[in-house]
Design a protein around this nucleic acid. Structure first.
Lengths: 342, 342
DNA sequence: CTGAAAGCGCTTACAG
DNA sequence: CTGAAAGCGCTTACAG
């Protein structure tokens, strides 16, 4: 390996000078810079990341905490990971993955190693046990998602309010009024409530209230069988519903199946719109689901950038950034049928 | 932060001694060890990972190369990532993610930083351009997947031969003889051929040849529309096929849709068995697909362990480990109908 | 504008 | 069994 020492000798300067030109951290005369740069090129010098980290007390490593449980098959989680690692790379950082569940002790142990400068957390709960741990450790962090009291720290998140409104407006434009909501059941992810479900339901209730429509809010676990069962309940208890907004990727196919098995068709009898669902999952559904896709990769990137800004002391205020999901076409939404006299 | 120096002073020993008890790298008398250990506990000492890395010339960091393109929504890719990070953690290592495509220069730049001790690569092609780069850099590596000439380096991979045989035997046991194969089209992933498709097709042809059945091997791109088009071709050109083994997760839903649109039903008219498909994807299909699920997480874990064994000089021979996919039930396979006189 | 030197927090021959 | 000391490859006040 080529060291700064080698470059310095070849260029006939001190190693401090080499460091200054490599980092651009101090004025160096053009002639000297030239000599150093060609020495580096000739020797193929790349500075040792570890030594730099130790000396500068900045490892330029950030960690992404990801709980394995519900993340495993999650396409959006994959996008966070990809976006975060890309974002880190764009800013000369590396992303390390810490497979820690909501276990404060495990997290603390990782933090104590002093490997990373900051932390990114995803699958954030409204009362997230990782936050106090991070705070106590004094580790800078940015959340992908929000706690119940989000203003205190940096986050990037989906703009659920806008997204829900966009989705409901879309369904209303197709003539639907009796629109049901299906979210994941609270507590499905752990002891504490999960923000997205709460925020989506709240936005839904607000929108319905504005139109004097009684809400039809339902919840189920994150798997197809639960969606099937939810379809039965929905059709039995709310036969007047002509559309469903479903914020539960895993249950969506079961929901579609349940509607079909009842003899009704999607979208002719019931329209279905997916929320927070990737294009890939939507395409797997039968029929392919019209959906609002989360900007997962972009959120991952932004989170990494926000964290690095924080580490570099660039931002006085913690970043609060919301991005709406993007509506994408499918074959699951049709104009509402006029109500049949019953 | 508490340093070894602090522990040494409190225990009344040298910092070398502290290092020895922390690492268990040299004999220390019981009494001394005791003193050091309680000093560590009292001070809450955790050794600095970076300093250790620099001094020992072992960062205990390994990188996972992942090409973003086809990996993004890929559930198995997510399992590799999760398994690899878990496996690294089990062996006191950290996993860093390098978002590099098949770009030798980019990879070399990462490698030159000297951050990691070794590398894991996934989405391996038969002629993978990353392999010569890794070899030239002298970086130890383990592949998740195999090149055309795999014996030279360590790898873990799916046992396609066994898996294909298991799947075909399963279909044969249900009475199917005219079994078609649908794989992803070669070159879909880049310039070089993709191992899984090649290996699956070869195993399929062997199995069919053993039974004197002419093979029906088809290929299509990785998306639902391509699967739909493949269904049309299949039904038109091979109306005698009663079952399809599909090794293309992305195209599978389109295939199912195409069969259905032709007026045939799955599984009554045509049985479909998914290969290399996660339970999650299989459940999204209509009907839920019987499938052989890749042991993605386990492969990720094993790859990390194999790499770390290599780094620790534990293995003389490079690891060659194959794991078959696991058959899981669905509703897409039924007994073959007796052929109709035509 | 440039350099000599201390220091980041560890590991590891080498002596004793 | 234990310690003094050099060294890992950088960064960064401090002097000049």
């Amino acid at each position: 390996m080529v060291r700064m020492q080698d470059v310095a000798e070849r260029a006939g300067v001190s190693i401090a000078t080499v460091s200054f030109v490599v980092n651009g951290t101090k004025r160096v005369s053009a002639a000297t810079r030239e000599r150093v740069e060609s020495a580096m090129a000739e020797l193929g010098f790349t500075r040792n990341v570890l030594a730099r980290a130790l000396a500068s007390r900045r490892s330029r490593l950030i960690a992404l905490l990801f709980p394995g449980l519900d993340t495993r098959g999650n396409a959006t989680a994959m996008e966070f990971v990809h976006g975060a690692s890309t974002g880190a790379a764009e800013r000369d950082h590396h992303l390390v993955l810490w497979p820690v569940e909501n276990d404060p002790d495990a997290l603390r142990a990782y933090l104590d190693g002093g490997l990373v400068d900051g932390v990114l957390a995803m699958e954030v709960q409204l009362e997230d046990p990782r936050v106090p741990t991070l705070l106590a450790a004094g580790t800078p962090f940015v959340l992908i998602g929000r706690t119940a009291e989000p203003s205190a720290h940096g986050y990037v998140d989906i703009d659920f309010e806008t997204t829900v409104r966009d989705c409901l407006d879309r369904l209303a434009a197709a003539g639907h009024r009796r629109i049901a909501l299906a979210v994941e059941r609270q507590g499905a992810l752990g002891e504490s409530a999960y923000g997205p479900a709460v925020r989506v339901e709240r936005a839904y209730r607000d929108w319905m209230a504005e139109r004097d429509e009684p809400p039809i809010a339902m919840a189920c676990e994150r798997h197809p069988a639960a969606g099937l069962e939810l379809a039965d309940r929905l059709l039995a208890e709310h036969p007047d519903a002509t559309a469903v907004l479903v914020n539960n990727q895993e249950a969506a196919p079961g929901l579609l199946r349940g509607i079909r098995r009842s003899g009704r068709t999607v979208p002719d009898d019931v329209s279905v719109l997916g929320l927070g669902m990737t294009a890939r999952t939507a395409e797997l559904c039968e029929p392919p689901l019209e959906h609002a896709a989360p900007p997962g990769q972009e959120l991952g990137r932004l989170a990494a950038h926000a964290l690095i800004d924080l580490l570099e002391g660039r931002d006085a205020e913690p970043v609060h950034r919301l991005l709406p999901c993007v509506l994408a076409p499918g074959e699951s939404v049709a104009p509402a049928r006029p109500p049949v006299a019953g």
